[in-house]
Design a protein around this nucleic acid. Structure first.
Lengths: 337, 337
DNA sequence: TTGAAAGCGCTACCAA
DNA sequence: TTGGTAGCGCTTTCAA
């Protein structure tokens, strides 16, 4: 039913070895034979089985990508960037939404291992780094994207989270705000912590404090969570005039809360997001946000990974890469009135 | 370096056949042996190679998903739904962004074929259906999602586009609008055409006409395109009071155009979108839109596909499935003032 | 119940 | 330049 290398060899009156050579452009085959074989392959609509090739030790040309949730625009954009570059390099992508659930991660990891992916890109949080052990042992190269290093064997590609937090603070400070609060995702996520650290440090350098009670975090449904936390912040008698939200979804939730409570943005409240996903450009007012260079990160991650998995033997010597973020000022921030 | 079935067999003092049986829960192996083998597998951290298994004719447990662009929230949500269900059924997903480019589609199709995916879910437009030929010959089951049938061999899972168009029209009609226009994506896409057809028919049934000049389409950057087309529509001396946009991205573009031109939504202009992606809930005002039951469609598509590929031999007799959409009324539509 | 052995489609090494 | 052939790791008869 499906043409194999044997069919081609038979039709062309050569050995399968010859056909294999032609497929891989190796060995020495005369022009004549080569062309003959090509034409037979064409005629039979022959497609070499990557499965069989992989079994003999070649690569599978498949990369695994772990993200918390592909329907979250940030990760969708990451996936897009990664896929694009992978495709360019001849690899395809197995995408896995982990829901940040270790059990699911374990299943996926095991599956990817069984499928012998050539490399792994991790964009999901992981409570239990041990789960990577088996992969590392089998020396499957791993890079993490937008996440701090998980282990010394994982090369991270990340955005300057700390710097991003600083930028947000600086911007808000310049606008004259003095009562600032933070809404974060999940403090287990290192990038959130870094952003907050940058934010706080910049504030303190300016002689302002960021009280612990004004750093709210947690929750799974980001939009809801952002809204809920913003509500709490805004209903206090002394309320913040500016909010730094650790991602766009949270910022949008905050935006909704503000509107619901009758605060005008940015006149009564400034909001800064993080990520610069499509969402940020679509809200009203559009969101001032710290942009992650998603396309660049995706591309870099794939390139590092492929570089890693193509150089055999050589000890890996790639180090962490940090790409600087950029503040995109839109309409959700302004001077205090 | 990596444990194989041989290692397990040797350690356990049995034949590889026995191990294989245990793995697959087939054949008759004594409790004792079985447990012994299991414990050895555990100890060796053995993971059966799916590659090798696939080579012997078993499935690869991989499904291919073709979408135009995974970073578009609609397709990201589709991907999420599909992945979720696939994972539940023990399959993983190779996701491919085609950019609606036939050349890219061809490359991906060829790749998926070489990887022997068990089935294909197509959510992308295809100018050249012929490309599916090779897959169909190899009897790889294919379902299309949110797309009209591409060929008699492709089972479609779609939303009632026509009905959705009707709903939008009805809603607008009820609000008293009489000058309605349409902004569409690309008239090559059958779903767009169907939506418009439903919309127009409902209008006509109410004695209203939808002039061809008020049906604008085309473009690749949906947001921009929606904005541009809305601009054109709104700057005419006799302008529409209501816009039906064939997807949320277009609707958001229209929303931005309206604001830029100083029209209030919904007081001066009503806008209805289509899809009900997360974007629709995030704009201001939030978008009234026709909701596609994305999760349901994704689940159904996967189930149909797996059903198809598990029943050997039996002639496929699954027929097209249409899930009805639902109008979600938010704040972008209102009575004319 | 168990095991020996014949593939699955392809690569790579070694002879010819 | 070519072709023969030994695997790669696993499934699956078929005998024992």
């Amino acid at each position: 039913m499906k043409a194999t290398i044997y069919d081609v060899a038979r039709e062309a009156g050569v050995s399968i070895a010859a056909v294999s050579q032609v497929i891989n452009g190796k060995g020495k085959i005369s022009e004549e034979r080569r062309n003959e074989i090509f034409s037979v392959m064409e005629r039979l609509n022959y497609r070499p089985s990557l499965i069989a090739a992989a079994l003999t030790g070649k690569r599978t040309y498949t990369l695994g990508l772990l993200v918390p949730d592909i329907s979250n625009p940030f990760f969708a954009e990451i996936a897009h960037a990664v896929e694009d570059q992978a495709h360019q390099r001849g690899y395809s992508l197995a995408i896995c939404s982990t829901h940040n659930d270790d059990e699911r991660i374990e299943r996926y990891l095991s599956l990817l291992q069984q499928k012998s992916v050539d490399g792994l890109i991790i964009g999901t949080g992981m409570d239990n780094v041990e789960l990577l052990g088996p992969l590392i042992e089998k020396s499957v190269p791993i890079v993490s994207i937008a996440r701090e290093t998980l282990s010394s064997h994982v090369v991270p590609v990340l955005v300057g989270d700390f710097a991003g937090g600083c930028m947000a603070a600086q911007h808000l400070l310049q606008l004259g705000h003095t009562r600032l609060a933070v809404i974060a995702e999940n403090l287990k996520v290192s990038s959130s912590r870094e952003r907050i650290r940058g934010f706080r440090q910049t504030l303190e350098a300016a002689g302002l404090a960021l009280p612990e009670t004004w750093v709210l975090a947690g929750g799974n449904d980001l939009l809801q969570e952002g809204k809920r936390n913003a509500m709490m912040l805004l209903q206090q008698t002394v309320r913040p005039t500016a909010l730094f939200c650790c991602n766009d979804l949270l910022a949008i939730g905050a935006l909704q809360a503000a509107k619901e409570l009758g605060f005008r943005v940015p006149e009564d409240l400034s909001i800064v997001g993080f990520d610069n996903t499509i969402l940020a450009s679509v809200t009203d007012p559009p969101l001032t946000t710290v942009a992650q260079p998603i396309a660049e990160m995706g591309k870099l991650a794939v390139n590092l990974l492929i570089e890693e998995l193509t150089k055999v033997g050589t000890t890996s010597n790639v180090q962490r890469t940090v790409i600087e973020p950029e503040l995109v000022v839109r309409k959700s921030t302004g001077t205090i009135s």
